[in-house]
Design a binder for these strands. Sequence first.
DNA 1: GGAGTTGTTCCGCC
DNA 2: AGGCGGAACAACTC
Length: 274
Amino acid sequence: MPELPEVETIVRGLRDLILGKEIIDLKIREERVIGFPGAKDFIKGVKGKKILNVKRRGKYIIIILEEKKEVVVHLRMTGQLLIKPRYLPFDKHTHVIFELNDNMDLRFNNVRKFGRLYFVDDGEWERVGGLAKLGPEPLSDDFTLDKFTKSIRKRKGNIKSLLLNQSFIAGMGNIYTDEALFLSRISPLRRADTLNEREIKELYQAIRKVLNMGIESGGTTFSDYLNANGEKGSFQDYLKVYNRKGENCLICNTPIIKAQIAGRSTHYCPNCQR
DNA sequence: GGAGTTGTTCCGCC
DNA sequence: AGGCGGAACAACTC
């Protein structure tokens, strides 16, 4: 499932592959995945424009076009953005095809049809799901320990659901949240405002560490995630708690627990994490 | 073939 | 007002 490291990996790959190219035509095979505007206006707006840059904000991919326009993509659980030669047949779940001017396609695949594409004016993010309401970027310079400390002390919910809250912090999903809590030895059940100064600092560092390691590994692939070149990530080989239910904790040998917390499967060590 | 899967949004409640 | 918890959604796998 694409979280910040997976989306960042896709964005970096796209930057290498499609910058400066022109979108000469589009095919939309499943109109449901166009979030804004309608399919016809989406095609009309995007067709003929050059790609100037590709950026990421939280889990959103932002493709900057000419004339101050943007295509914004959210992959949700199973979305993929792949660069493929035009002669290759579509996959069963290829829903949108951007035809580029060098016989390559940018293809949007999405098994569960949850992902969305938007065509908007530069920065008109009110129209794009929760994009305008996103919290800080955890890897940016202005995500400081001081700000994190102040915001976390106001919160009364459990720390697991808070880290998943995109308006609190952008880009964390189920995998990296469980891993960050394990690294900082904090139970996912803890109320956020009960964390002491040391725990907040360790969590802050753990968040940045797992996200950076995820990016360095090219993301985590369990089933669907692929980068823009169609390659898998490798962070699944380094996970310490996620998907390790019943296996021994790498620190204390206690079996890893999997429980429903905040409506999500949550993996943690009941001994190390307090 | 019912349960499990996740990111996001919406809804009701406080 | 806004935080919080829980439900709903989508469709495929096991």
